[in-house]
Simulated assay, not measured.
Amino acid sequence: MKADPADQRRLLDLAEVDAELARLAHRRRTLPEDGEHATAEKAVQAAKDKLVGIETSAGDLDRDIRRIERDVEGVRARTVRDQEMLASAGVGAKQASDLQHELETLARRQGVLEDEQLEIMEQREAVGIDLDHARGELATAEETLTDVGARRDSALADITASEAGRRRARADAVASIGAADLLAAYETRLSQGRVGAGLLRERRCGACRLELDRTFIGQLRAAAADDVVHCEECGAILVRTPESGL
């Protein structure tokens, strides 16, 4: 294949733009903010799960407190009734003894319930502290997630803007190359995930960075200026310029 040396040199501009696009694509795939965002999401979910667990415990204790309050009210009401009956006229000795015994039983029951109520209220107070702490942890985790998300979005926006600029530059570079066959050969290599072209400088291929064999360098010296030559190591189009030292 032959191509105007000027078109061959323009391939270097195109290759540089494509290298920049590749770097931007790699940056997009490996954004540190992506990992930070995933970690922050897990932290938020863990904080939510923790909060739900503590809220469940608080709800259970609140129900126990309400149950005991109802039981205490019931015991107090029964005590008042028995006291009124004991104080009323016409109560026989046997009934008075039974009422007195029941009042003693109710007093013991009320004491047990009130002790249990106090214990549960102390537990509820401790859980309330845990609840406030868990809510604070969740708020902090959500703030971190929001911050990381904003930084990730900003980084992606920068990459997108850079990519748009490089694609415009690529279109200009492609339009400047008049050799269709040369451009097709370059694009084929690029589609295969390989570097399309590289500058030959001091016996090294600019695409693979390998030093080329002296025999091959001799063949390059003998090649016409419009001959399209390829690196013997990686197959990229070798562009010769005064820097090549041939």
Rank of each mutant, 00 (worst) to 15 (best):
L131S: 04
R108N: 05
R135A: 04
L86P: 09
L118M: 06
A87C: 08
D98G: 12
V229P: 09
K50F: 07
L106D: 01
D7T: 05
A22Y: 05
A47C: 08
C231A: 01
A164M: 10
A236N: 02
R194P: 02
R81D: 09
L12S: 14
E119G: 11
E20A: 13
A46M: 04
Q117V: 05
A19F: 13
R135S: 07
Q8H: 09
E211K: 15
I159R: 04
Q123N: 13
L21A: 06
R70I: 00
A157N: 12
E55A: 06
L210N: 11
G149K: 07
T56L: 11
T146L: 11
V174M: 05
R151D: 13
T56G: 07
A126T: 10
A15Y: 05
A19C: 07
D226E: 14
D132H: 09
A38L: 11
S88I: 08
L12Q: 08
G165R: 00
L200G: 02
A6C: 05
Y186H: 06
A225F: 04
Q192S: 15
G53I: 08
Q45E: 12
S88F: 06
D213P: 03
R67K: 09
Q83N: 13
D13C: 01
R29W: 05
D7H: 03
A169P: 06
Q95D: 15
V228R: 14
Q95M: 15
G136F: 12
R204C: 13
Q100N: 07
G165L: 02
L145N: 08
E187M: 02
I68R: 03
R29S: 14
L138D: 01
E20S: 08
Q45I: 06
L182E: 13
A141N: 06
L113R: 00
R9Q: 12
A15D: 10
A38Q: 10
E102D: 13
M85R: 12
